[in-house]
Design a binder for these strands. Structure first.
Lengths: 199, 199
DNA sequence: AATGCCAGCAAGCAGTCACTTGCATGCATG
DNA sequence: CATGCATGCAAGTGACTGCTTGCTGGCATT
């Protein structure tokens, strides 16, 4: 009466598929490797998912881009703390999934369908953009910048750091935490918000 | 007496190899595909380069990361114009090579040797860092930020835009030129340099 | 004319790939 | 006990992979 073993197999296969794909890409993610990592017979993959392409599509869709929705306060009070918190969490997510993200980026021209339509990145950008707009409306930030450009700019900083810190350590001196604080500090200054100076 | 035809073949093969690699990655860059794109018999690849791995290594090393050295003035005069120019050229390079860069990033964990030691990115960061330091020493920028962190921050903005604009157009509204101007404007503000306001 | 080099062509080799088939096994439900 | 289902195992399919071999022809130098 417990369907767990079945689901357990499916889940194990999906998890293994994402891991192997992250490391080796689509072509390198052979069904043999996935089956071995999932400790399952190779035939089982095909019985469950039909084909390698279907398996990887479902695996990346389900596990790769789970949306950990991080919201910013509707009524901004402490821009520095609020942005530090949000950016820290966002960066943690990027860092945790950096292998998968890098692999997807490298293959996006060949497999554009793997990038989900309502990408979490775009959703996060929308959240951040709205927050910056609220800062402006409440006079907590200058009015002469475009939140729709500033948001992806800040996210680009986090993205580049999360993708590059491990493969080009010379480029990113110090700790990630310290860098993050500097990023937020400089960003706050650039939009004329409080918290841009050493607190 | 003209060795051009030989060199011509080698060059054509190398160029084709980079193109095919950029599009399909290491595993997808089959010797058949490269030979076809170079309009050369497949055997010729092996006679010239020995193996697929050697060919791709040489191709990416020689053609992929040519250093277009862009220097910033020793004596800063107009931070806004100088940074706009430098960032514009840097971004153009990134955009032009974005396919190759994305593919390399996706495979860097599997093939770390393809990333050259003195990567142009790191050299560019050093150039920018020194420029920011000069701004500080001349009193053209605030003294309370770390150029070694601000430089990769600015470059990260450019990098993320160059990599993401074509695959996530929703995230980057407006033109690239307009975005670049905003980035530089906001960056100048963040370091307290002149030119951070509408000129 | 003779030599040497570079290229193309056809064929093939062994290995890996995704995927299929047939059969045996265990296990839960009726 | 009988039925159905999920799984493992062994074997094999045709396509593609990197790479090799043997041969031919063109072209420049001697």
């Amino acid at each position: 009466m417990d369907p767990r073993p079945l689901t357990d197999h499916r889940a194990r296969i999906l998890r293994a598929a994402v891991e192997v794909y992250s490391e080796f890409g689509f072509r390198g993610a052979t069904t043999r490797r996935i089956a071995q990592k999932a400790e399952v017979n190779e035939v089982t993959l095909f019985r469950h998912f039909g084909s390698k392409a279907s398996l990887l599509r479902e695996a990346i869709e389900c596990q790769g881009f789970e949306i950990h929705f991080q919201h910013l306060p509707d009524i901004p009070a402490h821009p520095r703390e609020e942005l530090l918190d949000w950016c820290g969490r966002h960066m943690e997510e990027l860092r945790a999934r950096r292998s998968l993200i890098r692999t997807c980026m490298g293959e996006i021209e060949e497999h554009p369908e793997i990038l989900p339509a309502g990408s979490p990145t775009i959703q996060a950008a929308a959240v951040l953009t709205e927050y910056l707009r609220r800062l402006q409306h409440r006079g907590l930030a200058r009015a002469d910048f475009d939140p729709a450009l500033a948001a992806p700019m800040l996210m680009g900083i986090l993205f580049a750091d999360a993708m590059g810190r491990d493969i080009m350590p010379d480029l990113y001196p110090g700790t990630a935490a310290n860098a993050l604080e500097q990023y937020v500090t400089l960003f706050l200054r650039s939009i004329g918000a409080a918290g841009g100076d050493a607190p």
